[in-house]
Design a protein around this nucleic acid. Structure first.
Lengths: 213, 213, 213, 213
DNA sequence: CATGAATGAGCCTTCATTCAT
DNA sequence: TATGAATGAAGGCTCATTCAT
């Protein structure tokens, strides 16, 4: 009985925090961090200013939490996707499929606004970026795995070390995502990314190279 | 006599404006736009606050002017570079040389700080970006020219329309430059860009493709 | 059965109040009243904020109660000390001994921090000071008693009325205590107070005066 | 001509600063520092909030300046007073006259409210107290001078070293001033101080002491 | 042209107190 | 009794901009 009471109040509190969090998220998507005031947030959430500070230590803390939350969890999604391929899948198919998946996650789960924030934050370094760095690390690992597989199987060929090649691929997907943020909404991320990586894959594919020899 | 006085005053005024402009430029290179106050600028320039508003309509107007100035002029440099090639130069060599030139200009003439500002501005759209758009247009034209040449000469092959292919190449150089801003100073822009474009060129080179057929 | 429960709850409540009270006391000793927040107090006491307002009407009420409590009880200690002297003790010895006792109580029982609070409160009058006034009254009475004794016995001589003389002596001990607060910890209250009162006593001692006549 | 313009504007600015300063002074006399807000001050001065920060770096800076200003200058007044005595003046007369002068300055030039602030500040140490320390140093020197004179002339006698004796006298005047702040306005500082120091002087006077021997 | 004092809306944060549970 | 989420009035300070001189 007592527990229920407590639990209900806790639910209410969580709901309030959620409202603040989501209101902030909406505003962060539309405006710069600096241009979103605590007043804006609490007004959007329909609570008092003091309430904000009951749930968040500071505006900066909210921003950090905000950035952190929506990049974590994405990794797992990617991993699961890669693991779902049958053993014999061609590395190039895996890579293109991974590109599709990433495009889908960025477009759907994360969304344009949040990605724009991430790219901006990476340039300004204004807030704690551990979460973003973690995300980038995971991205790197996945590309490295697939490329390594392709090279071992003789599917890919390159004069570059695996590490360097991987960096170029990660750089490409990041560049395309950045472009997407710039051109949004007139840019189909998945389509463009696939087309771009087909060129890159052609550049390392052994099919052609072998033929030359 | 009167004219001389006037002309002298005009010179003085121009000098004052230049001082403000340069002081602002220095500060914008070191800090975010929002973090540079009008007070900072006038202090650095050694003039009074009121003087700032004699020469610039607003802080935003100064920023727009600032961004505009240092991208114009760069185009001409690129063009001259391309025109300097002998008639028979291979398209792929021209392209790689162009990449080198761009890397050199970004690294030298423009510099890391200013580019970071440009990339940030592109994401936030906080200020007038006509100048940047113009720059991007010129970049596009140059890539289009070289790629067209390569295709016409049978050096490049692609299923993509010229326009689309060009966009991918522009996207790639922008992506790499963005990466440079992120990883600065631990990133050799020219080296990385060349390596990256070699992969892309391999992807559209007819040498390999023809051999297969 | 019901009674026991009630009594038990009462005990619990008293315990909670005591915890709050002591936590507040500790904090008040370390920081200014204004710098100690209700949050600080409840955190130190390990109870919730609401609980604070169950036991104390307000923060100010707590402060008043706090000040009151630690000055009451001291009077009794002084009185007992005075009563312990044999009937024939010289008034000047009694007075010096009283000074020692006061120094000891201020230094030990009450402590530097609390006295500093008392002196500050006396200047600002920010809170209810009945307790402090009571303390001062008691101090006055004791000095008056001893000085009266000395005069009646012909040990002391003064042109001033007893009341006025007493006020000067009380003022002196208060001034020295204030100085102690200012110079703490580089000020030996007892030593300084004894030296000071020896001068004052010399000023009213008949030994010298009689000799002149 | 130009100078006049400038000078007039500077005068205006100085006037504004003075208005702020005086408004603050009035408020500081009536309320605690913490209880006087910048809003209060600017409202009393009839200027905008921004103007406050044109003239003062912060609220704390104003307070420090405020404290400093009204203790400096007082020293000179004391010094001049002491120097005005004829060569043969008795040390005890000089000392009592000095006491009168101090009482007069505290009561008149400085005033009850400001002294209360000083005493409070000395207890809390909340602000820069260099000015106050300087004042205390000067006070010490003057007492030391007079007491030394009295001892050298054989007018005063004491077992205490000059330094120690001086400290006791300074402590006494400070204690009485503190008492004045506590009892204001029911306390005649000059009268009480004179009476008190007569007792102290009696305590160190050789007239009596010599007689005994 | 140049000056710099004045403006005032706006920002983030604090904290004593209330009240439904 | 005890809880702790919610409140909202302040508070100190910043800064782009204006304007009389």
């Amino acid at each position: 009985m007592i527990k229920e009471k407590t639990s209900h109040r806790k639910e209410q509190a969580a709901e309030t925090k959620r409202k603040l969090y989501e209101s902030a998220g909406q505003l962060f998507g539309q405006y710069e961090f600096e241009d979103v005031t605590v007043d804006d947030i609490v007004e959007a959430a329909g609570v008092s200013k003091g309430t904000f500070y009951v749930h968040f230590e500071s505006k900066d803390a909210l921003i950090a939490s905000f950035l952190s939350d929506y990049v974590s969890g994405v990794d797992a999604e990617y991993k699961a996707h890669l693991d779902s391929f049958p053993a014999g899948t061609k590395a190039s198919d895996m890579l293109l499929s991974l590109i599709s998946k990433i495009a889908e996650v960025l477009t759907g789960t994360i969304g344009y606004n949040r990605m724009r924030i991430v790219y901006k934050v990476q340039l300004t370094g204004a807030v704690n970026m551990e979460a973003i760095k973690g995300y980038n690390r995971e991205l790197y690992k996945m590309f490295a795995d697939v490329l390594k597989l392709g090279i071992e199987r003789g599917e890919f060929r390159t004069e570059l070390p695996l590490d360097t090649l991987t960096k170029h691929f990660v750089m490409a997907i990041r560049g395309i995502s950045y472009e997407w943020c710039l051109r949004y909404p007139d840019f189909d991320l998945e389509e463009q990314a696939l087309a771009h990586f087909k060129i890159l894959l052609d550049g390392i594919n052994t099919r052609a190279a072998l033929a030359v020899e």
